[in-house]
Amino acid sequence: MDAKLVEIIACPVCKGKLQLDREHNELVCRFDRLAYPITENIPVLLETRARRLDPDELPG
């Protein structure tokens, strides 16, 4: 995933900044505790496809 793209993409729910989680191949919104999958190098920014994160799963 291109770092420049990660800088300009926003969470579709709160419009906040997303963080790249390379280990799980996801974009994470820390505020909403949602992880959006990246499929074939394309972020899937649909709330219905996001998974809810437990507080201990949030990347540092």
Rank of each mutant, 00 (worst) to 15 (best):
M1K: 03
M1V: 07
D2K: 07
D2A: 06
A3Q: 13
A3N: 10
K4Q: 15
K4G: 13
K4Y: 12
L5R: 01
L5H: 06
V6D: 01
V6K: 02
V6G: 09
E7F: 02
E7T: 13
I8R: 08
I8Q: 04
I8E: 01
I9Q: 00
C11Y: 00
C11I: 07
C11N: 05
P12R: 09
P12F: 01
C14L: 11
C14R: 11
K15Q: 13
K15S: 12
G16C: 10
G16L: 09
G16F: 11
K17F: 08
L18I: 07
L18G: 01
Q19R: 05
Q19S: 08
D21C: 09
D21M: 06
E23A: 12
E23G: 05
E26T: 04
L27R: 01
L27C: 05
V28L: 03
R30N: 14
R30E: 14
R30V: 13
D32I: 06
L34M: 13
Y36R: 01
Y36K: 02
Y36P: 02
P37V: 05
P37E: 02
I38A: 13
I38R: 10
I38P: 05
T39F: 13
T39K: 14
T39M: 13
T39G: 02
T39C: 12
E40N: 14
E40C: 12
E40K: 09
E40Y: 09
N41M: 10
I42S: 06
P43S: 07
P43W: 04
P43R: 05
V44G: 00
V44M: 10
V44H: 09
L45G: 03
L45K: 03
L46P: 05
L46T: 06
E47S: 09
T48W: 01
A50M: 07
A50L: 07
A50R: 00
A50Y: 03
L53P: 07
L53A: 10
D54V: 00
D54P: 01
P55R: 04
D56Q: 12
E57H: 10
L58G: 03
L58R: 07
L58C: 10
P59R: 05
P59M: 06
G60T: 07
